[in-house]
Design a protein around this nucleic acid. Structure first.
Lengths: 216, 216
DNA sequence: GTCAACGTTTGTGTATACAAGAATGGCATT
DNA sequence: AATGCCATTCTTGTATACACAAACGTTGAC
């Protein structure tokens, strides 16, 4: 639990939104939330203001807060930006790689290998996250790392859907192998290119998924 | 003035920070701010929470808020990310250019030409901003556009310093010409490359500036 | 029967009061 | 004289109360 109620609530509500407990478009009543978490309206409001600033909810003056529904198109746009940022992280990582980062990438990469081999998509989902975070860290750019982590977090629910797709686990892992190779050989441009497609493909897959659901 | 006091305060304090009225590292006392703006502490706190979420200030639990001092290195990192995002915007703009965007770019571009010819760095500063925003808009990616505008805003104070540098106006404008060319001919890769260096060079110039001030 | 206007109700926006934690200064002790 | 501890004070964190705006339902008129 966090140091003060406001931040704790922010994390709590953020998780609830990201796990679809609070559905997109749903109205968030301050009093209801306050009762639910057993606190007064004040910290609830503070949490909501922060979530509004992050862009997870929208507070319409005097009309309450609603959970933002990004919509398929916007989610695709977010993946597009994510791809670009990860590409940059990869290219910087290739240039600036040091021993510690190299070890971190190797470690998370082999954990991915194990869970991919076991076909455990839940484990892979988690290990994959750590792998990507290791690359952000290896970029040695604090700002870039923060931006990546934040966007990664917001895209989490949409990424989760995809690993269940047939063969995605093994494809994803073989892409990882090529990325690790490029970074370890110091080929920044190649790392950038590979990461951009590796991430970008998720946006496209998401689009396909939505399209197939819409036409069904 | 905005629709409610909290948001108005957020903008007000944000501007004060970006214009160095509240210096980096300075402590922001809630009561003092409340008195200064003639409101109670509640909306002040709400404004501060939002600024914390955006990353302009840091709220240390039970110890008050301080204005974040990014420091030269972090500012360089921010320019690096900005360069990447602008590159993406340019490449998308080249691919998706429509009549309206083309006209907007042309219009802002020629305004830049005029103020560059007049040697009016203040006017150029403003026109340059509009030119870049026209490119963001031309990318037709709402999310990317928002991210760009936000980062652009945060980097504003550091960009302002640089236009005073000798010859920067004409160099900047000739870079613009090449960028417009690439976008209008639909050469996305070239637009990306040009924009990346056009923006990236500002980060480097900023570094040089800081270095020269430090060794003086 | 339908639409508009008014009143009621519900929920947000702001202020204030109170509680709890951190900083600061003084006093005592070594 | 310096350092450590305790008390006081100041500031933040949370709750509550009140004010005001918006939505909804009801009633009346056309």
């Amino acid at each position: 639990m966090s140091e003060n109620v406001g931040r704790w609530l922010r994390d709590e509500i953020e998780n609830a939104i990201l796990s679809y407990e609070f559905a997109p478009g749903e109205r968030l009543d301050e009093t209801v939330l306050a009762n639910r978490f057993g606190v007064s309206r004040t910290p609830v409001r503070e949490a909501l203001m922060q979530l509004d600033a992050i862009g997870l909810i929208e507070i319409r003056p005097r009309r309450g807060a609603i959970v933002i529904d990004p919509g398929p198109h916007r989610i695709y746009e977010m993946f597009e930006v994510m791809a670009e940022l990860e590409g940059l992280a990869g290219s910087l990582a290739a240039r600036r790689l040091d021993k510690a980062s190299r070890e971190a990438i190797t470690a998370t990469h082999s954990r991915c290998e194990q869970s991919a081999a076991a076909g455990d998509s839940d484990a892979y989902y988690y290990d994959n996250e750590e792998f990507h975070k290791a690359i952000y860290a290896a970029s040695r750019s604090d700002f870039l790392q923060e931006q990546c982590v934040q966007l990664h977090r917001r895209l989490r629910p949409y990424r989760r859907l995809q690993l269940r797709v047939r063969n995605r686990l093994s494809t994803s892992f073989s892409e990882h192998c090529a990325i690790v190779d490029a970074i370890f050989t110091g080929d920044g441009d190649e790392a950038r290119r590979l990461l951009r497609t590796h991430v970008g493909i998720q946006g496209e897959r998401f689009s396909d998924l939505v399209a197939s659901m819409a036409t069904r």
